[in-house]
Structures are given as structure tokens and as C-alpha cells.
């Protein structure tokens, strides 16, 4: 029997993580509820004026998405660290950075993609136009993978720490700023009927950059945290 090729190992790891998520699916719903709940708090805290909500809506939805992504971030490596599977991944003969892409992809499919599905509902709550809703989905599709990729570095650095969770937000949130700015202003622009192609290209550029740099940084961080 031959050793698994890299694409095989990649898909086996991806499928394993998806299977695990399916078997603990009750946990998946929490960040999603959080996303909806945080968004619903803003009208209560500020005002229910439809014009105002429409103006601040894109920012609110994106801030909520940022926080929801942060909340679910720890699960990328937490259980693998706790039960020792992470050591086994580290010692596999496959390049760790490629395995990291599989881990982050699985994590995005489990936690990022559901945000896209719920987002239109939030758009309705905050009175967004149809055009803005489309842009919102596009920005979430381009932006949330960047959040997962950047976040994975932060989790890799803090996975061995007892108080990792509180530090994680300090490490990761400042790095989320560009995504927030480009994405939220894209949605606001399209609500005002302005072009958004520049924003979307910038988000796509961020995604390309994150895909090319983050896996190696995550792998290096894990090696340091585990030592």
C-alpha cells in the first residue's frame, strides 16, 4: 500500500473535520445565533428609524460578523490540541502548511459559510436595499475566509495558553480592520448606488494575500506553540 498523496491527505483531513463538525452540530449553531442577536441589539440600543438603520446597517452587520468569526475561531485547533491530534498532524510526513489550508477551509465551511446564509435575514432587519444585500453577500464570501485565515495564526499562537481566548481577540481584531473597512464601505456604497468594484477587488487581493501567507505563518506558529 502506498502512502497517501498530498491531495488525498488534504481531502481526508477536510472530510474528517467536516464529519467531526457534523457529529457535534449542536455547537455550530451558537456563533450563528450570536451573529443574529448582536445585530438585533443595535436597533434596540440606538433607534429603530429605518433611514438611520439603513445607513449604519452595513457596519453593524460586518462588526457582528467579525465578532461571530472571532467567537468560533478557537474551535479550529482547540479539540485537536486537547486530545493530542495536533501533535500527530505536526508529525505527519505531509507539509504542515498545506494541512493548515485544509483545517482553515473546513473551519470556514462550518462557521463562515453559515453567516452568508443568515446575512440576508439581517439585511431585511436593517432595511438594506436589494443591491446592498447582493454586495453584502459578495463581501462576506470574500471577507470571511480572510478572517478565518488571519484568525488561524492567532489561534495557533495562543492554543497552548490557559487564558488564550482573551488574548486572541487582542491579537486578531486589529488585523481585521482592513477587511471591515473595505467590506462595510462596499455595502454602504452599493446602498447609495455607487460603484463597488474597487472595494471588491481590494477584498479579493486581501484574500489572495491571506491564502498565500497565512498557512505558512499558522504552521510556524503551531510548531512554536507545541514545543
Amino acid at each position: 500500500m502506498k502512502p497517501a498523496t498530498l491531495p488525498q491527505a488534504f481531502s481526508i483531513l477536510l472530510r474528517r473535520d467536516l464529519t467531526l463538525a457534523y457529529r457535534r452540530r449542536s455547537e455550530m449553531i451558537n456563533p450563528l445565533l450570536f451573529f443574529v442577536l448582536v445585530t438585533a441589539l443595535f436597533p434596540l440600543g440606538i433607534s429603530a428609524d429605518p433611514a438611520l438603520l439603513r445607513e449604519i446597517g452595513p457596519g453593524i452587520i460586518w462588526v457582528a460578523a467579525l465578532l461571530a468569526s472571532l467567537l468560533s475561531l478557537e474551535t479550529v485547533f482547540r479539540s485537536d490540541f486537547d486530545d493530542g491530534s495536533l501533535e500527530q498532524l505536526l508529525l505527519s510526513p505531509h507539509p504542515l502548511s498545506v494541512l493548515m489550508i485544509a483545517k482553515v477551509l473546513a473551519h470556514w465551511l462550518i462557521t463562515g459559510l453559515p453567516l452568508l446564509i443568515v446575512a440576508p435575514l439581517l439585511g431585511v432587519l436593517l432595511n438594506l436595499s436589494t443591491a446592498a444585500m447582493k454586495t453584502l453577500l459578495l463581501t462576506l464570501a470574500l471577507g470571511t475566509p480572510v478572517l478565518s485565515l488571519i484568525g488561524a495564526i492567532g489561534v495557533a499562537l495562543t492554543v497552548g495558553l490557559r487564558k488564550g481566548g482573551t488574548i486572541l481577540s487582542l491579537l486578531v481584531l486589529p488585523l481585521y480592520v482592513p477587511v471591515l473597512i473595505f467590506a462595510a464601505s462596499a455595502v454602504a456604497n452599493s446602498d447609495a448606488g455607487l460603484p463597488v468594484s474597487a472595494h471588491l477587488s481590494l477584498l479579493a487581493a486581501l484574500l489572495v494575500l491571506a491564502i498565500s501567507l497565512s498557512p505558512a505563518a499558522t504552521a510556524a506558529s503551531l510548531r512554536i506553540s507545541m514545543s
Binding site: 464529519t19 467531526l20 493530542g84 505527519s92 510526513p93
Partner: peptide, 30 residues
């Protein structure tokens, strides 16, 4: 190399077979 540490490195949500299939794909099958 093969390493078995303090922690078992087993996924509790997976069956015994699934755990071994995964382990095999991370190494050189015997």
C-alpha cells in the same frame, strides 16, 4: 517516526475504524 504521547491523539467523535483510517493516511501504510 511514530509518536504516541501522553494524550492518545484520538478523536472521541470518530469510530475506532475512522480513527485508524485517518492515522494511516497521515503516515506510511504498513
Amino acid at each position: 517516526t511514530a509518536w504516541v504521547g501522553h494524550k492518545d491523539g484520538i478523536k472521541l467523535e470518530l469510530t475506532a475504524r475512522e480513527n485508524l483510517v485517518f492515522a494511516r493516511s497521515l503516515g506510511t501504510p504498513s
